[in-house]
Design a protein around this nucleic acid. Sequence first.
DNA 1: GTCTATAGAACGATAGAC
DNA 2: GTCTATCGTTCTATAGAC
Lengths: 200, 200
Amino acid sequence: MTRKRRLTREEAKAETRRALLDAAAEVFAEHGFHGASIDTVAEAAGYTKGAVYSHFSNKDELYLALLDEHLSSEGPQAIALLESGAPIESFAAEIEARLPEEVEKMRDWGRLTYEFILHAMRNEEVRRRLSDRFERARDEYAATLEKRYAAIGEPPPIEIEKLATALMAFENGMSMMGLVNPELITGGVYSRTLERLLER
Amino acid sequence: MTRKRRLTREEAKAETRRALLDAAAEVFAEHGFHGASIDTVAEAAGYTKGAVYSHFSNKDELYLALLDEHLSSEGPQAIALLESGAPIESFAAEIEARLPEEVEKMRDWGRLTYEFILHAMRNEEVRRRLSDRFERARDEYAATLEKRYAAIGEPPPIEIEKLATALMAFENGMSMMGLVNPELITGGVYSRTLERLLER
DNA sequence: GTCTATAGAACGATAGAC
DNA sequence: GTCTATCGTTCTATAGAC
């Protein structure tokens, strides 16, 4: 690996943060939230504990940072089509097509998700911070839906915020069922339900 | 407690099983699946380990028996209205009214559920047995829906089996979100979404 | 010289072994 | 029930960017 030039402090910091997050994603995926140690994460990134704690105030925040990336990378990619006002059918088909690969990815992430929810249920402060993420995800979903129905000039089938919540719940539930058995959620349920929920 | 008469062998066996299940429900709720020991369950029921193992082949089966009771008591009670062909609105209103008390019950059961799913993900045989339960629950849901649409003489809005899966996913997802923050799922999302999914 | 990102020692809590 | 190992977190020292 060739080093192009000396990094500024900010660049170096950003690079370290990136490395830590990537390492955390790997280590958490392999060992789970409980099983992963801060030491191991730091080491996997080529640093020590000090580096982790200078970027994240604790282990919870490290996970929440991963969750933020997950929410802002997975979500929008899928719903970009919605915003443009493309027909529900193409959106639904897109989702359905991605499903097999999603199911695969979801194995690790799902485990992490449930571990962290269990953890959050035992700690009020953590629960609140997780809840904030859920709320924000729902609001972003709602904003996208808002734009969509404005774009196609039709009123939403049910109130936007409720619709956003329902979609999140449906997706989370499908995830859970898919973890137990992928076959339960294949065969067009995803797309047909989305069409049903979204179209007038 | 007054004993009316000598119990037959079968009655005594059933009584023991009942006591063990009740004890398991309590102990699992308090300590979680991992934290609960068979010893503690047996003791809480007034028996010893031997009694547990003569009724359930292992800890997994003990949980699965609880799940069976959960599925056949909570589910049908709620969907009985559906079968009769009562209007969606009354069904939805019923669900919405039960929501606060459901959320409360869900705290313990939700924890158990996620613990067991995590456990099942690490053990193929357990995963399969859990998957069977999901499948059966879906089929029972589908059968109820089938009757409903036959009763009202209308075709279902989407294919029955898909509809059953979608409803299960939605309910599971709402549960999960409700565990993190009950406020996320109140305010009519439940009823409006059910109406939307079920009505023609 | 000042500031800050990181290393690494130190500490307290906790879970698991025996 | 005791002991030990492990881990999250805190604290302090230092090297290098500015």
